[in-house]
């Protein structure tokens, strides 16, 4: 028994050493965002000789268009996530409850959407033809690329809700839509929380779609402001690091608060439900 204890002790020691590979870069970002320009240019992990926290962060905010980025990110993320939850829960409900050929074929199509990359250039063309604004296009595309995964999440969970509940609602005279929104949707709350968090992170952190659609300074999302800020201030590492820290902070806080749901959801979606 004592042998096992020492073994486990060594193992956790090793794991903590490995975790430094993750903690040191994070520490480096934070500590360098507090330094003066010359010290930050060294990009090391020593403690700063004097702290320039307020100065660096306020300068970064002014020059980077960060607040506007934050605003855009909030708008895009809120709309996309709310829409995804409403649309996908309803879609999954229909797919899961109806056993028609059509429903099955459509589910197969969803698998294709899960695997294949979105054809971004023609999508741009479609949005152009429909005269959609940049922001509207970005939101719609972000919704669409996250539909397949979210539908799967809901389908898996719906399997555990007995059909008898639907039937009881029917007997009480509820219409299909009423059954869904008043009876089923509240039951889906746990999976909705998961869907909320995962889609929040996916949309908030998105770069591959927004770089195509939100390509002018007034509608950059937060990751894009970071990307472009680096382009303009590549030598002001203290500002770049402040920028990186600021842009990552919302998601990191969310992650630390809700990690149980995040991990539950990640696995619910990826280990088939």
């Amino acid at each position: 028994m004592t042998k096992r204890k020492t073994e486990n002790g060594i193992l956790s020691g090793v794991l903590w050493i490995i975790s430094l590979f993750i903690l040191i870069p994070v520490f480096m970002v934070v500590i360098n965002s507090f330094k003066s320009r010359t010290e930050a240019a060294e990009m090391d992990i020593s403690l700063p000789s004097e702290y320039h926290i307020v100065e660096n962060y306020s300068q970064m905010m002014q020059e980077g268009g960060i607040l506007r980025g934050l605003m855009t990110s909030c708008i895009v993320t809120t709309i996309s996530v709310v829409a995804l939850i409403l649309i996908c829960s309803a879609m999954a409900y229909v797919f899961q409850r109806r056993n028609t050929k059509m429903a099955n074929r459509l589910s197969t199509l969803m698998v294709a959407g899960l695997v294949l990359p979105v054809q971004i250039i023609p999508t741009y063309f479609v949005c152009n033809t429909l005269h959609l604004g940049h922001m509207a296009s970005a939101i719609l595309v972000l919704i669409v690329i996250n539909i397949p995964f979210t539908v799967f999440l809901y389908t898996g969970y719906l399997k555990s809700i007995p059909r008898e509940i639907d039937e009881a609602a029917w007997i009480d005279g509820a219409s299909g839509i009423q059954t869904f929104f008043q009876v089923i949707f509240p039951l889906l709350k746990p999976v909705s929380i998961t869907a909320l968090i995962i889609n929040f992170m996916a949309v908030w952190n998105d770069f591959s779609v927004s770089i195509y659609f939100l390509n002018s300074a007034e509608n950059y999302t937060l990751p894009l402001t970071v990307y472009n800020f680096f382009g303009n201030h590549g030598s002001d590492w203290q500002l770049v690091f402040a920028n990186v820290a600021f842009a990552s902070l919302p998601v990191v806080i969310l992650y630390l608060l809700l990690q149980r749901h995040i991990i539950a959801g990640m696995t619910a979606g990826s280990v088939k439900g």
């Binding site: 993750i22 970002v29 992170m201 908030w204 952190n205 770069f207 937060l222 990751p223 894009l224 970071v226 990307y227 990186v244 842009a247 990552s248 998601v251 990191v252 969310l254 992650y255 995040i262």
Partner: peptide, 8 residues
């Protein structure tokens, strides 16, 4: 690291 955005 999985939750930090790729640009960062």
């Amino acid at each position: 690291p999985a939750v930090i955005n790729t640009v960062a």
